[in-house]
Amino acid sequence: MRGFTGRLTGWYLLATLSASGAAPASGIAEGQPFPLIALPALDDGRPLSMADFRGERVILHVFASW
């Protein structure tokens, strides 16, 4: 993960894309259900999806360590 400058770059990029009309994610839209896709858990590979967190308020970060 980048430092503060790198994060700004990421956000700037997101801002640029948003301003140009490009969507940050085609399947994620406000007011719509979050896509339910089974993905491997990082720690042990077991299947997880956002359905596992139903009933909870979730702050979801889609990210990369660079």
């Binding site: 994610a25 399947g27 979730v58 979801l60």
Partner: peptide, 25 residues
């Protein structure tokens, strides 16, 4: 598979799995 075009993105999701907010820069 989520077809995300850029990271990072922060998404606020309610108890029913509905996206309430895709946080802006």
């Amino acid at each position: 598979l989520l077809e995300v075009a850029v990271v990072p993105i922060t998404v606020l999701i309610d108890q029913h799995g509905i996206v309430r907010r895709v946080a802006r820069p």
